[in-house]
Simulated scan of single mutants.
Amino acid sequence: MKISLVVPAYNESKRIIHTLEEATYYMKSHFECYEIIIVDDGSTDDTVAIAETFSNLGVKVLKQPHAGKGKTLKSGILAATGDYIFFTDADLPYALDNIEVAIKHFKDETTALVIGARDLYHAENGIPYPFYRNIMSKAFSFIVNLFLNLDVKDTQCGFKAFKKDTAHTLFPLVEINGFGFDIELLKIARINHLKIVRIPVKLMHSSGSKVNPFKDSIKMLRDIKTVYKNAKRGLYEIR
């Protein structure tokens, strides 16, 4: 069994060393066969040079012009060769042992995707969301499910996992280059009746987020419209 971990990176020189130290130690400790793919999204700092120093520890670096998280992850996922393919954010905001949890769910042959769910973690542990995050999350979830009928409360969690065949079938259909790619990916899965399992994950906050709450929210509303139109046109059906 081979495991692929795909990590998108854009100007991450300040934290990529810690990320790769953690990731390589975890993967080497738990799996005999693995690869860590850092997909650089046109960084202008030393992200690539630093990541390449880990090449002897199972790290591969893909470089592309700056295009956005969606396109960056698409490149990494389609290059991945593992039996199970995972992606997470460059600051490792979710514990890597969620990988083992996801693999257990993949033992059910009907499971196609395993995705992190921050809302389940808060619900199961009785931990309230920060007020502003709760309002934004509920509003976005309402809009997404109103138009796209995903039945997924936390679409934007940066921890998702796939069987290789599933990933290499879904991602060629993903067109959105920015943060809205998650909702497009999940809509494609829903249209094709693929089983999605949600697992509770704890978000560990860190500084340096690339998300602009105002600008990116507007872009994602546009992405919802794009996904709605594409679904109506039958562009997401796997043939």
Rank of each mutant, 00 (worst) to 15 (best):
S4M: 07
S4K: 06
P8K: 06
A9H: 03
Y10K: 15
K14V: 08
I17W: 00
A23Y: 01
Y25T: 14
Y26G: 03
S29D: 08
S29A: 12
F31G: 02
F31A: 03
E32C: 08
C33N: 15
Y34Q: 04
I37F: 03
I38K: 02
D40C: 05
D41I: 10
G42L: 07
T44E: 15
V48S: 08
A49F: 07
N56P: 00
P65A: 11
P65H: 10
A67H: 02
K69N: 11
G70N: 07
K71Y: 11
L73E: 06
L73Q: 03
G76N: 10
L78V: 09
A79L: 01
A79K: 05
G82I: 02
Y84I: 12
F87S: 04
P93Y: 12
N98Q: 13
E100R: 13
E100D: 15
I103G: 03
I103E: 05
I103D: 01
K107S: 12
T110K: 08
T110N: 13
L113N: 01
I115M: 08
D119W: 07
L120W: 04
H122P: 00
E124N: 12
E124C: 01
G126H: 05
I127D: 04
F131D: 01
R133E: 15
R133Y: 06
M136C: 07
S137Y: 01
K138Y: 02
K138S: 12
A139S: 09
S141M: 11
L146H: 11
F147W: 11
K153Y: 14
K153N: 13
D154P: 07
C157K: 07
G158L: 10
A167G: 03
V174C: 11
V174Q: 06
G178P: 00
G178L: 06
F179S: 08
F181K: 02
E184S: 06
L185A: 07
I188T: 03
N192A: 10
V201H: 03
L203Q: 08
L203R: 10
S206L: 04
S207Y: 03
S209T: 14
F214R: 10
K215P: 00
I218Y: 08
R222W: 04
D223S: 11
N230P: 00
A231V: 02
R233D: 15
R233F: 05
R233S: 14
R233C: 09
G234H: 05
Y236F: 14
I238F: 06
I238V: 15
